[in-house]
Simulated scan of single mutants.
Amino acid sequence: MKIIVLGSAAGGGYPQWNCNCRNCNGLRKGAIRGRARTQSSIAISSNGNDWLLVNASPDILTQIRATPALQPARAARDSGIAAVLLMDAQVDHVTGLMMLREGRQIPLYCSASVRQDLLAGYPLAKVLSHYCGVQWHELAVAGGDRVSFTVPLLDGIRFTAIPLESKAPPYSPHRDHPAAGDNIGLLAHDLITGKKLFYAPGLGAIAPPTAAAMREADCLLVDGTFWTEDEMISLGFSGKPAVAMGHLPQSGAGGMLEVLDGMPAGRKILIHINNTNPILDEDSPQHATLLRHGVELAYDGMEIAL
């Protein structure tokens, strides 16, 4: 199983276009050591030619241009994207669907609540019906149970969708009334090698089913949005703490680093990193803390083989 990190930043990317925080300003001026990142998305394949796009970020065209495997050029018009899976209906995870409108009908895997959001609150699917259209594949997680499925052309990989505790987008009717399926985690199991990836770019809490899935995985690619619970508040960018925005911070008691310390996975990688997170400065003490815990920082173009 091959995984390519197409984008590793949270919404807005890094540096964010209108942000002059220490990270964004420092990266633009070359004052800090780090690398620019587009908004988070990954691609998964079993054969290196046909890929499941997991989340379609607003930066998808830039990501495709940077990833030759997604443009195999087998025909006059072609794409290596065999299907798209959405983890949630957040703007930074679904807007890229519009950039795929010139292609064939999009096989789209998502929960019922995400489908509802794409038909009503943020009706991308209605707009796409006038272009390529969408072929729906519902992940029936509404009861709170994990659901396994396969994707055509990704032979030898079994996927499992796991409902997560996080936040629905502001335009969702579930924003303040969470429902199973607003956010999912993805367990990808290579049936040949036996290896498993757990992917969850938005993770507000570690419920027992989530912890169980994480313990199964050989590689964890999980929410790295904020370093502290009050990160956005202390910078004056928001009045909301991290968990209220659906993200478990890395530091502090019960934080992501503490969770990852207890997991047996051989590789532990943070993704969906907000532009304000000090770990983006590779000379920061926070970045050094990650390394001491054996945790990696995802970057655009990162390749993982399992």
Rank of each mutant, 00 (worst) to 15 (best):
I184E: 09
K195E: 10
E216R: 15
E216C: 05
G202Q: 15
A168V: 08
W227F: 15
F226I: 06
A207P: 04
E231C: 04
P169R: 08
D223P: 07
G202D: 08
P178M: 03
A211E: 15
L187D: 08
E231H: 10
Y199E: 01
I206Q: 05
T210L: 01
I206R: 07
K195T: 10
D182Q: 09
S172G: 12
A217N: 04
A207H: 12
M232D: 13
A188Q: 01
T228K: 11
P173F: 11
I233N: 07
N183Y: 00
P201F: 00
A212G: 01
A200R: 10
D176I: 06
A217G: 04
T225M: 04
L187I: 08
G224E: 00
F198M: 11
K196M: 12
M214T: 05
G202V: 14
R215L: 10
Y199L: 14
P169S: 07
H174C: 04
D223E: 10
D190W: 05
D223T: 07
A207I: 01
L197H: 03
A200M: 08
A179K: 14
I184N: 04
Y199I: 03
P170H: 09
H189T: 12
H177T: 14
H177W: 00
P201S: 07
A217R: 03
E229Y: 04
G202K: 13
P173M: 02
G224P: 00
D190P: 02
F198W: 04
E216I: 05
D176R: 14
C219T: 15
P173R: 12
M232R: 14
A188I: 09
D230T: 14
D218F: 05
Y171M: 13
N183G: 06
A217C: 04
A217L: 03
L197V: 13
A179F: 07
G181A: 06
A179G: 07
D223K: 01
A213V: 09
I192S: 07
I206C: 13
R215F: 01
V222Y: 07
L203V: 09
C219N: 00
A213I: 02
H177E: 10
H189G: 05
A212E: 14
D223R: 03
T193G: 08
C219H: 01
L186P: 03
A179C: 13
L191S: 07
G204T: 11
D182R: 10
I184F: 06
L186K: 12
T210E: 01
W227D: 10
E229P: 08
H177S: 14
T193C: 10
P169C: 12
P173G: 09
D182C: 09
I233Q: 14
G185A: 07
F198R: 01
A200E: 05
K195Q: 15
G181K: 06
I192W: 00
G204A: 11
A213T: 07
E231M: 12
M214K: 04
D230E: 15
D176T: 09
P208C: 12
H177P: 00
H189V: 11
K196H: 03
D182Y: 13
P208G: 13
A168G: 08
A207Y: 06
N183R: 13
L197R: 01
